[in-house]
Simulated assay, not measured.
Amino acid sequence: MTEPSVWTKRRMGALMGGGVGLTIGFIFGSWSILQNGAGPRGVLSTLSKTMLSSAATFSFFLAIGSVIRNESPILEAAHLQLMTPAPAIRSRAEGFQLMRARWEEERRRGPPRL
Rank of each mutant, 00 (worst) to 15 (best):
S66D: 09
Q97I: 03
A88N: 01
G13H: 02
K9A: 06
G21F: 04
Q81M: 07
G21T: 09
W103P: 04
S72F: 10
V6C: 02
I68C: 01
L47Q: 05
F60Y: 09
S72E: 08
G39I: 06
W31I: 15
T84N: 14
G39Y: 03
W103E: 11
N36M: 09
I74F: 09
A14G: 12
R41H: 13
S30D: 01
I33R: 11
G19K: 11
G65P: 06
I89C: 00
F96D: 04
I74Q: 05
F96N: 07
L82H: 13
A55L: 09
M12T: 11
L98F: 05
F58Y: 11
G65I: 00
G65Y: 06
I68E: 07
L75R: 14
S59P: 08
I33S: 13
G18Y: 00
I68W: 12
I74M: 07
A56W: 00
P73S: 10
K9N: 15
L52N: 10
T23Q: 01
R11K: 12
T84S: 11
E76K: 15
T50H: 05
L47A: 07
F96C: 10
I27D: 00
E71T: 04
E71A: 10
R100V: 01
R100D: 02
L34A: 13
R41K: 14
L62R: 10
E105Y: 04
G18E: 07
W31L: 06
A88V: 07
V20A: 10
A38W: 08
R11D: 00
N36A: 13
H79Y: 04
G18T: 01
I27W: 05
G13N: 03
M12W: 08
L47D: 09
M51Q: 10
L98N: 12
G42V: 12
S32Y: 09
H79A: 05
I64P: 02
T46Q: 08
R102I: 09
